[in-house]
């Protein structure tokens, strides 16, 4: 680990932790389905950044770039399916409120 890499480590780490906190806050506070997905995206972005940082620090930036591209593709697939589910929920409930999702009971 070079000195230059180490000097970059902490600023990036602080930014990643901030992104995680914002993402979690966004998911926990909102009642809106779309906003919950946006919070999820923020969390995944934080992890993506962390993966790149890990590759840079450990000296394998090329490998992590390949991983990150794969990660982005998969994340897009998951989010597309998620928005599809939200769209269908909106068609059935006429609202995007999480509090309406309580039809499953014993």
């Amino acid at each position: 680990m070079t000195a230059q890499a180490l000097s970059l480590f902490w600023p990036y780490c602080i930014f990643i932790i901030m992104l995680v906190i914002i993402g979690l806050y966004c998911m926990l506070v909102t009642y809106n389905l779309i906003r919950a997905l946006i919070g999820l995206e923020l969390l995944i972005k934080a992890i993506t950044l962390f993966l790149i940082l890990a590759g840079y620090i450990s000296g394998h930036p090329v490998m992590t770039q390949a991983l990150v591209i794969t990660l982005i593709v998969i994340e897009v697939v998951v989010i597309v399916v998620a928005t599809g589910v939200v769209l269908n929920l909106h068609r059935q409930n006429q609202s995007l409120d999480v509090r309406k999702l309580r039809t499953i009971k014993d």
């Binding site: 998911m27 389905l33 919950a36 999820l40 969390l43 995944i44 998951v78 399916v81 998620a82 589910v85 939200v86 269908n88 929920l89 059935q92 409930n93 999702l101 039809t103 499953i104």
Partner: peptide, 15 residues
């Protein structure tokens, strides 16, 4: 409707 609801819960937790 119930299936969509369950899928959303599963999706968020799985993510």
């Amino acid at each position: 409707r119930e299936a969509l609801e369950a899928t959303f819960k599963y999706l968020i937790l799985s993510a």
